[in-house]
Computed example of a mutant assay.
Amino acid sequence: MHDKMKLKISMAFLWVAIYFVVMMIYTFFDIAIWRKITLKYSNCLNIVFIIACVIAFIILLCNRTGYKVKIFKNVTIINILLAVGCSVLFYFLLDKCFDPIFESLYPASEQAYENTIQSLLKTPITSLLQVCIIAPVIEEILMRGFVLGGLKDSYGNGIALLISAVLFAVLHFNMVQTISAFICGIILGILFLKTDSILSCIIAHIGYNLISFAMMIMPYIKR
């Protein structure tokens, strides 16, 4: 594929499904293998394995589709400032506004989300790497660079934006995160369409996750 990469909806669904399987694989290895081999170093083994899985997925994606990852395309000060602004917007819009509403509507999902938070807090360093660095990078390469970038050349900006946001939301496992992820996917998609920069989306995604992570663990650090 060239810079004008045309992508069918079915192929977008397929590659997101493949990435979902990759997520299931490294989650299975974490629970069923690494924790049983050595509980002390299981988190380190898991991070290394996740990085290996993500790199393998990107290589497979590029080799099979011809997609070229151009992370450093259109890197400008304005685009970076827009990305930082989106990070702050996400925190106040989602964490402070919409998430409390969604949590009250879906208490079961809220409990599952709280359990996940408690699990992450047990291993803050590796959790930081996974949630705030690895996940944003691969998700923006896949969802904005590949899916949105390819679909917009085939179906136009509107349909591409909607589908990419829906697929991004599906990757998040409970109702609270799914609804928030859809909103996040729409805004990140608009940022990508505005800047034509994967790096801007990565910065926005990392920034938001870092702010949320810091706000989440701060009460525990003060204790």
Rank of each mutant, 00 (worst) to 15 (best):
D3S: 14
D3C: 01
K4V: 08
K4G: 01
K8E: 11
I9T: 01
A12P: 00
F13Q: 06
V16W: 05
I18R: 03
V21Q: 03
V21T: 10
I25D: 04
F28Q: 04
A32P: 07
W34K: 10
R35K: 14
K36T: 09
L39E: 14
N43C: 00
N46T: 14
V48L: 15
V48S: 12
I50N: 02
V54Y: 12
I55G: 08
A56P: 06
A56Q: 06
F57S: 09
I58W: 07
L60R: 13
C62D: 02
N63D: 14
T65A: 14
G66C: 14
Y67R: 11
V69I: 11
F72Y: 08
V75G: 06
T76S: 15
A83I: 13
C86K: 04
S87F: 03
F90E: 07
F90V: 03
F92R: 10
F92N: 09
K96Q: 10
C97S: 15
C97W: 13
E103T: 10
L105K: 07
S109V: 00
T116D: 03
K122W: 06
T123D: 08
T123A: 12
I125G: 04
I125F: 15
V131P: 02
I133W: 02
I138W: 00
E139M: 05
E140I: 03
R144K: 10
G145L: 06
L148E: 13
G149E: 13
I159R: 14
L161H: 00
F168S: 02
F168M: 06
A169V: 02
V170F: 12
V170S: 05
V170L: 12
L171E: 05
H172F: 01
N174S: 08
S180M: 12
A181S: 15
F182K: 09
G185H: 03
I186G: 05
I186M: 12
I187R: 11
L188C: 02
F192V: 11
K194Y: 06
K194I: 06
T195P: 13
T195E: 11
T195A: 12
I198R: 05
C201G: 15
I203T: 04
I203F: 01
H205I: 07
I206F: 04
Y208C: 04
L210C: 11
F213N: 04
M215R: 00
M218V: 02
Y220L: 03
K222M: 14
K222N: 09
